[in-house]
Design a binder for these strands. Structure first.
Lengths: 241, 241
DNA sequence: CCTACAATTAAACGCTTGTTTCAAAAGGGC
DNA sequence: GCCCTTTTGAAACAAGCGTTTAATTGTAGG
């Protein structure tokens, strides 16, 4: 029983993580992993049972602490304020991503591409357990957000939480693609910058009057002349066609 | 030269699209595709040269019209108003997604999973040409958005455009995952609903005061009345720690 | 009818994949 | 020393992959 930091097991995990993040799980062969980790091919099946077992271990190692940190942050927040303000909640949700991606011991930047691939890869076994942990996180944050936004219907909050996840995951995971698409204009120095820019954006989004239930117009009126209602009807018209 | 609608070529494209969307490109074998399309295995290499050629054709068939529609919408919009209002621009960007996903002839719902996988799959050849067309779209919309939002710095607009793409792509592409995570609470009847809910969200986000430009003004109290401005300083403090 | 080209077919190619086998080496406990 | 368990090692396995070949069929044009 060797619990050294660079044991065979750990080296496999590190190599697999790197290659999974770079080229995706299905395109990464065990031989490429074991070559990079400088271990024997059979070691993967010995330590993890199968490739799928390795995949799950790789994801679990990173996503579990992330979700735990999110829950811990929220708990601490709710202990301080009874009902934390919106920005604090959003920050509690997003900051763990920054933390783990700036700490090499927690995986560094590669983790994020991994996170982004979680959704698309659709690795059956991963999504299974992942949805369990992750769902609890989303539920807890949904509750907190609903208390912070009493004027927004809970169903709408759920949607916006999904929008947040999308807006957070995509630019963070596909940074290189984003940079390619935006030329030199956007160059995220670190994930912290992404979050810092994302926070005001989603905070305002969460506070927006709900599109479906908005008979009320308490919103701050932008300088625009076009009323909020006029575009809505035009939207709905086209959507129903 | 058979240009029938269910020629071998078309049947391959349809089958490939379906399987790519369901299980991803690398996990979909040519044999599975040709079996579903009920054509010979060699037909793929005959008509598309290689698997990569098929992948590119599948993506191109859907994404090219989508991007074209986005450009066309924006053009028409700018002809009507000189500087279109924010919501109209966002709508012009998002609606083509709805249209193509509700029209089976344009691909129907599967297109969206395909779209979502574009980013994660990192299929080399696809991203190459895709980034060309797509970048033009993003650039044009960036210009329009900047004119609609003179108070937001152009760089910030670029970021927010990326957030929009993420928020649009993720729930739309991973609908089944989203539903799994949110239980019965969220059930998107169609993509139109997603867009309809997303529009007010991102519109408010785009209008939010820029987090970076608004350096250290007087800090109002965060607790007071949901002041829009006070949150920024507290955020920055924690992010810099 | 015949020619030429397009399209389809069945079979095989070489290669890579994940996994297994079995023997050798290493690591304590007594 | 020895024994037993854990871990590594090299080699092979069957299965699946994308691709190619070569023979066949289909379909106009002269």
């Amino acid at each position: 029983m060797t619990s050294l930091l660079d044991s065979t097991k750990e080296r496999i995990l590190a190599a697999a993580e790197e290659l999974f993040a770079k080229t995706g799980v299905p395109r990464t062969s065990l031989r490429a992993i074991t070559a990079l980790a400088r271990v024997n091919l059979a070691a993967v099946n010995y330590h993890f049972g199968s490739k799928e077992g390795l995949v799950e271990a790789v994801y679990r190692r990173r996503l579990e602490p992330l979700n735990k940190a999110r829950l811990r942050n929220l708990e601490r927040l709710e202990k301080k304020h009874g009902d934390p303000p919106l920005e604090a909640i959003l920050e509690a949700f997003m900051l763990p991503v920054v933390e783990c991606s700036s700490d090499p011991a927690q995986g560094g930047p590669t983790v994020l591409r991994l996170l982004g691939q979680t959704h698309a890869e659709a690795e059956e076994s991963v999504q299974e357990w992942f949805s369990g942990d992750y769902r609890e996180v989303l539920d807890r944050y949904h509750d907190a957000l609903c208390r912070a936004l009493p004027e927004v219907p809970p169903e709408e909050v759920r949607w916006r939480l999904q929008f947040l996840v999308g807006a957070l995951t995509y630019p963070v995971a596909e940074r290189q693609l984003v940079e390619l698409l935006s030329g030199e204009t956007i160059r995220a120095r670190d994930v912290g910058e992404v979050v810092q820019r994302l926070l005001p954006f989603v905070a305002a989004g969460f506070r927006a009057p709900s599109g479906t239930a908005a008979r009320q117009r308490k919103a701050t009126r932008p300088k625009s002349k076009r009323s909020t209602r006029s575009r809505k009807t035009s939207t709905r018209k086209r959507l129903n066609s």
